[in-house]
Amino acid sequence: MTETPNPHIIDTDTLTGEMRPIRRAVLALGSNLGERMASLQGAVNALADTPDVWITGVSPVYETEPVDCPPEAKNYLNAVVLIDTTLAASRLMDRALAIEDAFERERSEVRNAPRTLDVDLIVVGDRRSDEESLRLPHPRAHERAFVLRPWLDLEPDASLPDRGAVADLLDAADQSGIKVREDLVLEIQ
Results as ranks from 00 to 15, higher is better:
residue 53 V to M: 07
residue 38 A to I: 08
residue 55 I to E: 06
residue 38 A to C: 09
residue 35 E to F: 05
residue 24 R to M: 04
residue 51 P to F: 09
residue 37 M to N: 09
residue 43 A to N: 03
residue 26 V to C: 14
residue 24 R to Y: 02
residue 56 T to D: 12
residue 24 R to Q: 15
residue 58 V to H: 12
residue 42 G to C: 00
residue 28 A to L: 08
residue 42 G to W: 01
residue 44 V to A: 10
residue 39 S to R: 11
residue 39 S to T: 08
residue 32 N to P: 05
residue 44 V to G: 09
residue 41 Q to L: 00
residue 38 A to F: 08
residue 42 G to L: 00
residue 48 A to P: 01
residue 48 A to R: 07
residue 41 Q to D: 01
residue 36 R to E: 11
residue 25 A to S: 15
residue 34 G to H: 05
residue 32 N to G: 04
residue 45 N to E: 13
residue 38 A to P: 06
residue 50 T to C: 14
residue 58 V to A: 10
residue 28 A to W: 06
residue 43 A to S: 06
residue 28 A to T: 07
residue 48 A to M: 05
residue 46 A to G: 02
residue 39 S to F: 12
residue 25 A to R: 04
residue 25 A to G: 10
residue 48 A to K: 06
residue 37 M to L: 15
residue 43 A to D: 04
residue 44 V to Y: 10
residue 49 D to I: 02
residue 57 G to E: 11
residue 57 G to I: 08
residue 54 W to L: 14
residue 58 V to R: 12
residue 26 V to S: 04
residue 26 V to A: 13
residue 51 P to E: 14
residue 54 W to T: 15
residue 48 A to W: 09
residue 54 W to G: 08
residue 42 G to Q: 00
residue 30 G to H: 11
residue 52 D to K: 14
residue 28 A to Y: 10
residue 53 V to H: 05
residue 56 T to I: 15
residue 36 R to N: 12
residue 55 I to T: 04
residue 46 A to P: 01
residue 55 I to Y: 07
residue 57 G to W: 02
residue 37 M to S: 12
residue 35 E to W: 04
residue 58 V to F: 13
residue 50 T to R: 03
residue 25 A to T: 07
residue 54 W to A: 14
residue 54 W to E: 14
residue 47 L to V: 01
residue 29 L to E: 03
residue 27 L to W: 07
residue 51 P to V: 08
residue 35 E to L: 11
residue 44 V to E: 11
residue 58 V to Q: 12
residue 31 S to M: 04
residue 52 D to A: 14
residue 36 R to Y: 11
residue 58 V to I: 15
residue 57 G to V: 05
residue 45 N to P: 02
residue 27 L to F: 04
residue 52 D to H: 15
residue 34 G to S: 09
residue 44 V to W: 11
residue 47 L to F: 00
residue 40 L to C: 05
residue 55 I to N: 03
residue 52 D to N: 14
residue 53 V to E: 10
residue 34 G to Y: 06
residue 47 L to W: 00
residue 46 A to V: 01
residue 45 N to T: 13
residue 42 G to M: 01
residue 33 L to R: 12
residue 57 G to T: 09
residue 33 L to Y: 02
residue 34 G to Q: 06
residue 40 L to T: 04
residue 47 L to N: 01
residue 42 G to V: 00
residue 26 V to T: 14
residue 55 I to A: 07
residue 23 R to W: 09
residue 51 P to W: 08
residue 36 R to G: 10
residue 57 G to L: 10
residue 51 P to K: 09
residue 40 L to W: 07
residue 27 L to D: 08
